Amino acid sequence: MKMDQPRPGGGDPEESRLHVAVIMDGNGRWAKNRGWPRLVGHRKGAERARELVEACPRLGIRYLTIYAFSTENWSRTTEEVLGLMSLFGRYIKREASRIKKEGVRMRFIGDRDPLDPKLQALFEWIETETAHNDRVHLTVAINYGGRDEIRRATQSVVRAVQAGTLDPDAITDRTLSAHMDTAGLPDPDLVVRTSGETRVSNYLLWQAAYAEYIFTPVLWPDFTPDIMAGFIETYRQRERRFGAAPA
């Protein structure tokens, strides 16, 4: 399937840089409601993620960051965790050619060390293969937690100070951002969470400080690009003041 073409007349450089982050929640419940195993819901959720990536140019989304597996998800059953890890690997192998051809740059954030070495190698391979793509920047958070990311970034900054390459008095917000997993990416403009939950679940805690949030009761396997289009219109109607007084 071809990725959608950019929206007619969409020449606004700010729109073309729109960064949307998604907490893809509700896969298990979607399957349970139908009497199916949870992994069926995850497979359907992966299809929805693919559809959203394909629709990004039409929607004006340049950067899409999706929450696929959190540091807390290890508490799920061994069967579900192994099934999810297998799904990630199959997705990369199956979609690699299309992703590369359609100009998608793929990145992974999170702590990779606990993951299977073969999966880590796949991550590195697809990141290298798509490194020069710039049409859509797809970032997948796997074994990711916002607090864990801040901890690892802080450790990196401390090591730089100890090595004498960083002056503690020169540390700014930008310094810490440069040590985050998302270094080089713009902060998200809009965060969407599906399934009716209204919490941020340890997702992009540093980066989403000034993001707009939308929570929807729609379960992720039922979420469509058209629903996202409506949310983007809602986002564009909001006044973002970043702490300033209204005009």
Rank of each mutant, 00 (worst) to 15 (best):
I150N: 08
R152W: 00
A153G: 12
T154M: 15
T154I: 14
T154D: 12
Q155H: 13
S156I: 06
S156R: 15
V157S: 03
V157P: 04
V158T: 13
R159G: 11
R159S: 14
R159H: 14
A160S: 15
V161I: 15
T165D: 13
T165K: 12
L166N: 04
D167K: 02
D169R: 09
D169C: 12
A170K: 12
A170V: 03
A170T: 12
R174G: 14
T175W: 14
L176A: 00
S177I: 08
A178S: 15
A178Q: 14
H179C: 11
D181H: 14
D181L: 03
D181K: 07
A183G: 08
A183H: 09
L185E: 14
L185P: 06
L185G: 10
P186M: 10
D187L: 07
D187P: 07
D187Q: 08
D187H: 11
P188L: 03
D189P: 05
V191N: 02
V192E: 04
R193K: 02
R193T: 00
S195H: 01
E197V: 10
R199I: 09
V200Y: 02
S201Q: 01
L204E: 06
L205F: 01
L205W: 00
Q207F: 07
Q207I: 05
Q207M: 04
Q207H: 10
A208S: 13
A208M: 00
A209M: 10
A209V: 00
A209R: 06
A209K: 11
A209W: 06
A211Y: 00
E212P: 03
Y213V: 09
I214D: 01
F215D: 01
F215S: 02
P217F: 05
V218W: 05
V218T: 13
V218N: 03
L219P: 03
L219W: 04
